Simulated assay, not measured.
Amino acid sequence: MTATLKSFATNINCGSCVRSVTPFLDELEGVTIWRVDVEDDRKLLTVEGTATEAEIMQVVEDAGYDIRPVRA
């Protein structure tokens, strides 16, 4: 499977939020690298890897955050 870059709008809005979602995203198989831009109004989460959009959304929701896909 080819690695792709996926973007999501979230409510992950501070360093503490990023720390709390970190173990969820770090443990998701197929995630190569991820980051949250808390300066962006959308609190943009970008994920690179082979994990599916649904898998990424599920772990972020499991961590207690809102997430929705951002289409290019």
Rank of each mutant, 00 (worst) to 15 (best):
F24E: 01
N13A: 15
T10L: 06
T46P: 02
T46N: 09
L25V: 12
M57Q: 15
R35M: 10
Q58S: 03
V21M: 08
L5A: 12
V21N: 04
E55M: 08
W34T: 02
Q58T: 02
L45Q: 03
I67M: 09
N11G: 04
E39Q: 13
A9V: 00
E27I: 04
E61S: 14
L25P: 02
Y65F: 15
M57T: 01
G15D: 13
A9D: 04
M1L: 10
I67C: 02
D66Q: 15
R42H: 08
I67D: 01
S16V: 12
N11E: 04
D41P: 11
D41A: 14
T10P: 04
I12P: 01
A3M: 01
I12S: 06
D40Q: 04
S20G: 06
V36L: 01
M1F: 08
V60H: 08
R19G: 12
V60N: 11
E39V: 05
V18H: 04
V47P: 02
T50N: 12
T52Q: 13
V21S: 11
E61W: 03
W34S: 03
V18G: 07
T50H: 07
T22D: 14
A3W: 00
I12T: 09
R19L: 05
L45N: 01
D62V: 07
G15K: 08
L5E: 14
A9N: 04
V18N: 02
L25A: 06
C14A: 08
V21H: 08
S16W: 10
R35Y: 08
I56K: 04
E29K: 02
M1N: 10
T2V: 08
E55N: 05
T22L: 05
P23I: 02
R71D: 08
L45D: 00
T4I: 05
V31Y: 01
W34P: 03
Y65C: 06
I12F: 09
C17M: 09
K43C: 12
L44V: 10
P23W: 09
A63G: 05
I12G: 08
K43W: 09
S7A: 14
A54Y: 05
E61M: 11
S20I: 06
V60I: 14
A51V: 12
D26K: 13
G30Q: 00
A63W: 10
M1D: 09
